[in-house]
Design a protein around this nucleic acid. Sequence first.
DNA 1: AACTCGCCAATGGAAGGACCAATCTATCTG
DNA 2: CAGATAGATTGGTCCTTCCATTGGCGAGTT
Lengths: 286, 286
Amino acid sequence: MDGPFAGTSSGKLVDVCSVPAKAGRAGEDIALQIQAAVLDGTVRPGERLPSERELQVLFKTGRGVIREALQVLKHKGLIEIRKGAKGGAFVKNIEVVSVSEAFALFLRQNQTDPNNLIEFRESLDLVITDLAIARGSAEQKQQLVERTETLAKVANCSVAHDASHPEGSPGSASMEGAETLVELDRELNLLFAKMAGNPIFEWIMQAIQSGFSSLDNALYEDAAYRRIAVDNWQNTARAIFQNDPLKAKSFISYHYMVLRQKVDQAHATNDSGVKTTKIQGENWSA
Amino acid sequence: MDGPFAGTSSGKLVDVCSVPAKAGRAGEDIALQIQAAVLDGTVRPGERLPSERELQVLFKTGRGVIREALQVLKHKGLIEIRKGAKGGAFVKNIEVVSVSEAFALFLRQNQTDPNNLIEFRESLDLVITDLAIARGSAEQKQQLVERTETLAKVANCSVAHDASHPEGSPGSASMEGAETLVELDRELNLLFAKMAGNPIFEWIMQAIQSGFSSLDNALYEDAAYRRIAVDNWQNTARAIFQNDPLKAKSFISYHYMVLRQKVDQAHATNDSGVKTTKIQGENWSA
DNA sequence: AACTCGCCAATGGAAGGACCAATCTATCTG
DNA sequence: CAGATAGATTGGTCCTTCCATTGGCGAGTT
C-alpha cells in the first residue's frame, strides 16, 4: 500500500537534499532541490512527496517557504497537489500545455507581429507536409481528409446562418460558428503535426496556436476567408492523401498568402497609428 | 510619494480586481487577477505593484496567499521582486529564457529522442538559411563568416591540446575547449537565426538549444566530429555570404547527417537495453 | 456477512502575528 | 559639505491557529 519508504513517508528525499538551504532565498533553493529530486528520478512520477509539515522539518524551515516552493513547482507542471488525507504533492508528467502557456504568455506580452507568426507557421507547415506524407499512416491521411470534410460542413452551416447577417453584424450564430471552426482548425493542425512522427512538431504547433488563436478567431468570422480556408484545408488534405507533397505545399502557401492579405487588411482598417511591430533585437542580442 | 497614483501606491489595481477571490483557491485567483492586470497593461512594465501588505488588505486575505501568488508570477517571469524600502514587485518584460526553461524542462522530463531534436533543428536551419540569405545584411553575413573563423581557431587550439590526449581521456583542456566551442556554436546559431529577421525563429532556436546543450557538449569532445562540424560551419557561412542557399543547405544537411551518425554510435555504445524513445503518442492524442 | 453511517486523523488552504534583513531616505554630526 | 546614523518601508522567514477536504476505520444496522 505505502510503497518502498517507511511510514513517515519522507524517505528518499532525506538522502538527497542538503538540508541547510542558503539564507536569503531559502524558498528558491528548496524549490530547486525538490525539482532536482524530481528530475533525477529520485521520486518518480505518480509518487508522493512528503507532506508540507514533514518537508518543513526536513528542510528546517517554515511551512510558508515550503508552500511557496510547492506552488512554484505546481505551476511549472512538475507536481500536482491534492487535499485531504493521503493527499500531498504528487510528481506529475509535465504536459506540453505548460510550455505552450509560457510561450503564449511571451507572445502576448511582446505583441509579436502577426506576419512573423504567419511566416513561422507557414514554414512549419511546409516542413510537416513532407514528413506527414512520408510517415503518416494511410489511416491518418484518411482521417485528415474526413476531418476537413466535417470542417466544410460546419462552415457551410455557418455560412447559411450568415446569409441573414450580411456582413459585419456580430450575430451570435456567426460567433459560435467561428469558434467551433477555429477549434476544428486547431485539431486539424495538431493531427497534421502528429503525422510528422516527431513530437517536437506537435509541441511547437500547440504552442504556436496558443498565441495564434485570437487571430484565427477574428479571421474565421469573415465568410469569404472562411470559404477559402476551408477549401484549402480540403485540398491540402486530399493532396496529402494522394502523397503529392508539391501540390499540398502549394495549397498551404496559397492559404498563407490569403491569410497575409487578410491580416494586412485588418491592420489597415483597425490600426491608426498604433505600431504592431514592437520587438526588435533588443532582448536577443546578448 | 510620486507617480500617477496616490501615496498608498495601490491605485490602479483597486479598480480592476474583484476583491472577493473565490474560496478554496484564493491564491490561484489572485495570481490570475494580478497576471491579468499585468497583461492588460493596467500596470505597465517597470511599474511597481502594491506592497504585499497592501495587496493583503486589498484582496482581504492573508499575506501568505499573496506571497504564493507573487512567487508564481515571479517564476513565470512576469514580475521581479526587490527587497527593502522602495522594493516590491515590479512588472517585467518576459524574457525568452522563461520559455526556453519550460521547454528544456519538458524535453528533459520526457527524455526526447535526440533524433527528433536533430530532425527538428535541421528543418529549422534549412528554413532559416533561405531567410537569412534573403534578409540578412552584408555585415551580418560577414560577421557570421568571421565568427566561424574564430570557432575554427579555438577548435584547432583544442585539437592541438588533444594531440597529447589521444582519445577518450577526460583531460580538462579538452573539456574546457569543448565547452567554449559549444558556447561559440550556440552564439553562431543565434546570430544565424537572428539573420532570418523573424524573432520567432530566434526564440525557437534559443529554446531548442536549451534542450540540446548536453548533447552538443558530449559531441564536441570528439575531435573528429569537432573538425567536421567546424569545417561545415565555415563552409555554410561562406555559402550564405555568397548568397548560395543550395550550397548552404547542402552543408547543413551534411552536418546533421554526421550528427545523426555520431548520436547513433553513442547510443550503440552507451545504452545497453535502456530504450531512448520514450514518448509515443500518449500525451498528445487528446 | 455485508453494507452503511459517522467519527477521526492526516493534509492542504488560509489567516494573522512577530521578527529579521535589506534597502532607501532623511537627518544629524563632524 | 561629507559621512555616519537613525528611521521607515518592504520582502523573507518562522510560528500558531483554524478551517475544509479527504480517506480510513470501526461501530452499528440490516
